[in-house]
Deep mutational scan, measured.
Amino acid sequence: MSRVPSPPPPAEMSSGPVAESWCYTQIKVVKFSYMWTINNFSFCREEMGEVIKSSTFSSGANDKLKWCLRVNPKGLDEESKDYLSLYLLLVSCPKSEVRAKFKFSILNAKGEETKAMESQRAYRFVQGKDWGFKKFIRRDFLLDEANGLLPDDKLTLFCEVSVVQDSVNISGQNTMNMVKVPECRLADELGGLWENSRFTDCCLCVAGQEFQAHKAILAARSPVFSAMFEHEMEESKKNRVEINDVEPEVFKEMMCFIYTGKAPNLDKMADDLLAAADKYALERLKVMCEDALCSNLSVENAAEILILADLHSADQLKTQAVDFINYHASDVLETSGWKSMVVSHPHLVAEAYRSLASAQCPFLGPPRKRLKQS
């Protein structure tokens, strides 16, 4: 649940008159999402009104509101027999009622949201009550392989729920002597030191190019640089560091992050930047690179990204790559990247197969709970 924001200063709310007192009302909304995959969808019983329910879910471990999704594969009634019906059901509720908006969509073979439908307002739910769409999607369109909505005969539904909580009022009075504290510009100011090479005390040599930097900042941000300058190493004695395995453009992006906490060109060089972040123990930059690479996972590059993640101990990226390969196994196994990995990294192939087997055979063990970014 997000923290209630402070109200904007009255002088910034309007260029008009300023009242002596004010009130700011925040209506709290808890948002969460749920993904439900139905394997072997074409084998569902086709009687009209037949119901399939998901397991229950909530916004978190401490949330007492429990929900589930309900599907009628062949419609709810005679009117909707040519459609799939989809509903959000409130299973248990400690209150007399709650209000919530919802959005349903289908994830296609690429994991993209399609055929989205959402409620136009927050509906009133009581325990045992459901709301949804009797005519969510035509069955003939859903079952047509050309539309790519049932890869490997799996129907994957994605649901986003927004639950309306209580409202909170914050009130106060205006004073004539309003003090406005300026925003912190530390990142910009440190970035200026790097860009202008002011007050530098060490030189970093990268592929024949020299960059002036500040030992204190490098040591504070990177345990690797800290070790170089702290001990009686040649880098500490000469205040000069030779860097041979990072390209200059990648190095500059890494230094921008060290000084400012930002990497504006990360998406263009996420793979190389991940390697640099791993070498210099820049954990936050490493996770930022993992996130960017996750966003660009595809059938063509899944094997290469899995190898990269394994090489640099990028655990979150590795998990996402394995899950992606499992979901698109029939396509990924035909790529040149996968065939190369079979020869060069057989242990990763074995890991992917083990994960695929456990996903398809849940009876082999208890269900695993899916539970950071600093």
Score class of each variant (00 low, 15 high):
residue 134 K to W: 01
residue 347 H to T: 02
residue 109 A to Q: 06
residue 97 E to W: 10
residue 217 I to S: 05
residue 323 D to L: 13
residue 291 D to I: 13
residue 56 T to P: 07
residue 266 L to I: 06
residue 311 L to T: 06
residue 55 S to V: 11
residue 260 T to R: 03
residue 136 F to Y: 10
residue 208 G to K: 15
residue 118 E to F: 07
residue 68 C to S: 05
residue 86 L to P: 07
residue 158 F to P: 00
residue 15 S to V: 10
residue 15 S to E: 04
residue 320 Q to D: 08
residue 68 C to I: 07
residue 47 E to V: 08
residue 178 M to D: 03
residue 228 M to H: 11
residue 9 P to E: 13
residue 212 Q to A: 14
residue 291 D to V: 07
residue 29 V to Q: 05
residue 221 R to W: 05
residue 139 R to T: 13
residue 187 A to I: 07
residue 374 S to K: 13
residue 166 D to W: 14
residue 67 W to K: 00
residue 60 G to F: 12
residue 53 K to G: 04
residue 324 F to G: 00
residue 178 M to W: 03
residue 287 V to M: 07
residue 289 C to W: 00
residue 124 R to Q: 15
residue 211 F to W: 15
residue 107 L to A: 14
residue 300 E to C: 08
residue 339 K to P: 13
residue 218 L to N: 00
residue 89 L to H: 11
residue 241 V to L: 03
residue 142 L to P: 09
residue 69 L to Y: 07
residue 322 V to E: 10
residue 69 L to V: 10
residue 374 S to F: 14
residue 316 Q to C: 05
residue 193 L to S: 05
residue 322 V to I: 09
residue 129 K to W: 14
residue 199 F to W: 15
residue 250 V to A: 01
residue 60 G to N: 09
residue 339 K to E: 02
residue 26 Q to W: 06
residue 335 T to K: 02
residue 30 V to H: 04
residue 234 E to A: 14
residue 337 G to N: 03
residue 104 F to W: 13
residue 30 V to P: 11
residue 372 K to S: 05
residue 23 C to W: 02
residue 212 Q to P: 12
residue 291 D to P: 12
residue 32 F to N: 11
residue 166 D to A: 02
residue 336 S to H: 10
residue 102 F to A: 01
residue 214 H to C: 14
residue 2 S to P: 07
residue 339 K to D: 15
residue 101 K to H: 12
residue 364 L to H: 13
residue 352 A to G: 07
residue 233 M to Q: 04
residue 13 M to D: 04
residue 80 S to Y: 05
residue 239 N to F: 09
residue 187 A to S: 04
residue 83 Y to R: 05
residue 363 F to Q: 13
residue 111 G to A: 02
residue 16 G to W: 05
residue 167 S to D: 01
residue 228 M to L: 14
residue 298 S to R: 06
residue 296 N to R: 13
residue 31 K to F: 05
residue 334 E to V: 01
residue 337 G to T: 03
residue 214 H to Y: 03
residue 327 Y to Q: 06
residue 221 R to C: 15
residue 2 S to M: 13
residue 215 K to M: 11
residue 269 M to K: 04
residue 104 F to L: 12
residue 122 A to W: 02
residue 60 G to H: 10
residue 298 S to W: 12
residue 228 M to V: 11
residue 69 L to W: 08
residue 28 K to I: 06
residue 296 N to I: 09
residue 204 L to Q: 11
residue 19 A to M: 07
residue 14 S to R: 07
residue 45 R to F: 06
residue 304 E to R: 08
residue 223 P to R: 12
residue 308 L to C: 07
residue 317 L to F: 02
residue 189 E to P: 09
residue 289 C to V: 12
